[in-house]
């Protein structure tokens, strides 16, 4: 019985892959995917590295900028404008603006994607800090917390939902954008879309695109959970 099932399975796939699906370039050829899934492993890992580095880098820089702008309000406008310009310059253009400096490769891609991220994360952190109720910081000052204690123990924890929201937007957008890293020779899932004659091979495009979408959803879900862990008071509020 088991053997029989296995045989059916086998013919199911061979039937598909041995047909004219690939030659006809049908919308989706499952057989090809089964035979070729291993070629997506490396690009997926590269993609993860690109996204992880760009979001982590973007977060660190944006966090530093946001703390500075929180201390010195006059910096808010120039920081917003500066990150705004970096956000507006299309990543694909950014890759090649960096060409004379960092050449081609994943570093170039990571820098460009980081630059894209800054504004999203910066804006959310500053909004989060600004939305902390003044009476809470006032009370913290009243019971004797120093300025940096207020920042780390009161303001940043209370701004956490906004900060995580910014990270979610940045991460999801970066997963999608990182497919363009292929143009900078930065690897990632984009390689499986444009390299060679793949650009017209629908199954390849769909698989690479789907992996990117799934990766975005997974990252988003993980960050959502992290946010709930870091802001337990919000969770309780939502339930009651």
């Amino acid at each position: 019985m088991i053997e029989q099932l296995a045989a059916v399975d086998q013919s199911f796939f061979t039937d598909r892959s041995s047909g004219n699906c690939i030659q006809d370039n049908k919308l989706f050829c499952p057989g090809w995917v089964v035979d070729n899934y291993d070629r997506y492993v490396d690009p997926t890992l590269q993609h993860l590295v690109l996204v992880g580095s760009a979001v982590a880098g973007g977060f660190l820089i944006a966090f530093g900028l946001a703390i500075l702008a929180h201390r010195h309000r006059f910096l808010q406008t120039p920081f917003l404008a500066g990150t705004g310009i970096l956000y507006t310059i299309p990543s694909i253009s950014f890759f090649f603006l960096l060409l004379p400096i960092t050449g081609r490769g994943s570093l170039t891609a990571i820098i460009a994607l980081t630059a894209f991220n800054l504004q999203i994360i910066f804006r959310n952190i500053t909004t989060g800090l600004r939305n902390v109720p003044p009476n809470v910081t006032e009370a913290a000052r009243g019971i004797g917390l120093t300025r940096s204690q207020i920042l780390w123990q009161v303001e940043i924890p209370l701004a956490m939902p906004e900060i995580i929201a910014g990270l979610r937007i940045a991460t999801v957008s970066t997963v999608a954008l990182a497919t363009l890293a292929v143009f900078a020779n930065g690897g990632g899932l984009g390689t499986e879309i444009v390299t060679g004659s793949n650009i017209t091979f629908k199954t390849g495009i769909i698989v690479a695109g789907s992996i990117a979408v799934i990766m975005a959803i997974v990252f988003d879900g993980v960050l959502l959970l992290v946010g709930k862990l870091l802001a337990p008071w919000k969770r309780k509020q939502a339930i009651s």
């Binding site: 370039n25 919308l27 937007i169 999801v172 957008s173 997963v175 999608a176 954008l177 497919t179 363009l180 292929v182 899932l189 984009g190 879309i193 444009v194 650009i199 017209t200 091979f201 629908k202 495009i205 769909i206 690479a208 695109g209 990117a212 979408v213 975005a216 959803i217 988003d220």
Partner: peptide, 19 residues
């Protein structure tokens, strides 16, 4: 809005052109 951000631009353009 959330879903829109997750669409890989490259895959979308390539698929539209190919399909």
């Amino acid at each position: 809005g959330n879903a829109g951000r997750a669409i890989p631009e490259l895959a979308l353009i390539a698929l539209m052109a190919a399909a």
